[in-house]
Nucleic acid binder design. Structure first.
Lengths: 207, 207
DNA sequence: CCATAAAAATACATGTGATGTAAATTTGCA
DNA sequence: TGCAAATTTACATCACATGTATTTTTATGG
């Protein structure tokens, strides 16, 4: 199992990273629609056809990293702690997303610019929403599997949909009205708490 | 104000309806991706270019009617009743969507087939999610404007996002596991109620 | 170190969605 | 009927995306 990546893998990684970096640079420089895939490929020193062997579409180039972050959330749900209620588990998993913002200021700035770009371009926004929605399906499934006695599949779906739906819209609205990244994160937390209150009311019916 | 549609308007309406009908027929007959815009236009007896003067994209042809339904929800929020709490208002507005299913069985079947088609094709799903998300922004804004004392903009966004997010995911999961339309609607109601419990907890802090 | 196989990048061809432009047609109204 | 405006059309064009065959690069075994 002690695998050394190998030249082939390392080169692929570098190419992928170069494509992402050049794409972001060009998008910010001259706009998303105004940038062609051909230009991105040219900037990263590969052929246009090669671009599509790394990314299925022009949108995915910006969503590639987001996909990995969401997978982290998915894994977090699978590892339920012994003393954790379903609501607490969900709160912890969703909270993980925001830790990335607090970790590194440099990365946070890049994430913020990507976020702003994605949210301002309809086709990118649509793809991001699709990715998030499909992840929610998996999250609901995982939550139900981990808490089969407390939540049936529909209740788990309601819980996941409510918490992420609330945080998503609140965060977006917060950014749209000109809030800072910190204020946006705080808005997401407040929104998630509101939704979680509903989840708690269901899982703990009556004392 | 006593406007008679006029031949020009009536003809446009008929053309639009024909395009939607032929598109749905072809999509169900041979699949969404396998159907070209040219074929749809041909079936509706117009040129390919004319299709794009009625719809901005191939996806929009199936989402055109959904847009109108969502506008109805938006108008419902604006008309708050005197004795209505924010949660009740939201519940009533969201509940409106399901009344369409109960009204006419024939229309309900067509809506169900459109729904299934949209949910099974990624690009359609993405556009539907985009439409729903952008509507939520307006809904949150309207809700905040109608209940400025009970909900700030972030809380209103959380409420709208939670309720619609919960119903959306629960309904989708319900359909995916093979439930009937009635069971799907019931799942949406249950999910919305869970989310609404959180909203109520916020708007009525402590007795 | 070379030969061979596997993997990746490339060139090339093609189809479809989408848009701009200008000409032709249809409709509304005096 | 005749004119003006709205609508449709044909034509050209571009970008995204995919299939196929060829070339280049990397890995591995003798």
């Amino acid at each position: 199992m002690g695998e050394v990546p190998g030249l082939r893998e390392r080169k692929k990684l570098r190419t992928r990273h170069a494509l992402i970096a050049e794409a972001l640079r060009l998008f910010l420089e001259k706009g998303y629609e105004q940038t062609t895939v051909s230009e991105i490929a040219m900037a990263a020193d590969v052929s246009t056809r090669t671009f599509f062997s790394y990314f299925a579409s022009k949108e995915e180039v910006l969503l590639y990293n987001a996909r990995e972050n969401l997978d982290r959330t998915l894994r977090a749900v699978a590892e339920r702690r012994s003393d954790e209620s379903p609501a607490d588990l969900l709160a912890r998993a969703v909270g993980l997303v925001f830790t990335t913002f607090a970790e590194d200021a440099e990365v946070a700035r890049e994430l913020a610019s990507i976020n702003q770009l994605v949210m301002s371009v309809p086709s990118l926004r649509a793809q991001a929403l699709l990715l998030l929605f499909d992840t929610q399906r998996q999250l609901a499934d995982a939550l139900h599997r981990v808490c089969p006695d407390e939540l049936d599949l529909i209740e788990a779906s309601a819980a996941v949909g409510a918490v992420i739906g609330a945080a998503k819209l609140a965060g977006f609205v917060s950014l749209k009205r000109g809030d800072s990244s910190e204020e946006m994160v705080e808005a997401c937390r407040r929104a998630a708490d509101i939704a979680l209150a509903g989840v708690r009311a269901v899982t703990i019916p009556e004392p």
